[in-house]
């Protein structure tokens, strides 16, 4: 992710830049969390629980592809919405949360 792409490590050479490591670990946690949620939500929406065959059938495969794409779209939309909400809250002096 973009916030990892800062310049080369300069603070305390030889040792570890704990701040940077902390960020990388947080990012790793975030990515795995999204992935795990994606797996479980698309499984419950796309996979037939009769389990008649061990392979994904065509319908399920297509469903998974669309499910992942849609999940990311929703992710983006909600993110934008919340960003707008945040902007409104700071602009309106914080009281606008009551009117939601």
């Amino acid at each position: 992710m973009s916030f990892l792409g800062r310049g080369a490590s300069s603070s305390n050479q030889g040792g570890m830049n704990t701040e940077k490591l902390e960020m990388a670990m947080t990012e790793l946690d975030m990515v795995t969390d999204v992935f795990n949620r994606l797996v479980s939500v698309c499984h419950s929406k796309c996979i037939n629980t009769r389990y008649a065959e061990p392979d994904l059938n065509k319908g399920e495969s297509v469903c998974i592809d669309r499910c992942v794409a849609k999940f990311f779209e929703v992710n983006k939309k909600v993110g934008e919405k919340m960003q707008a909400m945040g902007a409104n809250a700071t602009a309106g002096g914080g009281s606008s949360f009551g009117s939601l």
Partner: peptide
Amino acid sequence: ETCVMNCTDKFLKHSERVGARFAEH
């Protein structure tokens, strides 16, 4: 038993496919 076997197989294939799409994204 076959249901359980299919279920595990299918779940792994499912998460593999999600992983592929995820990586692409």
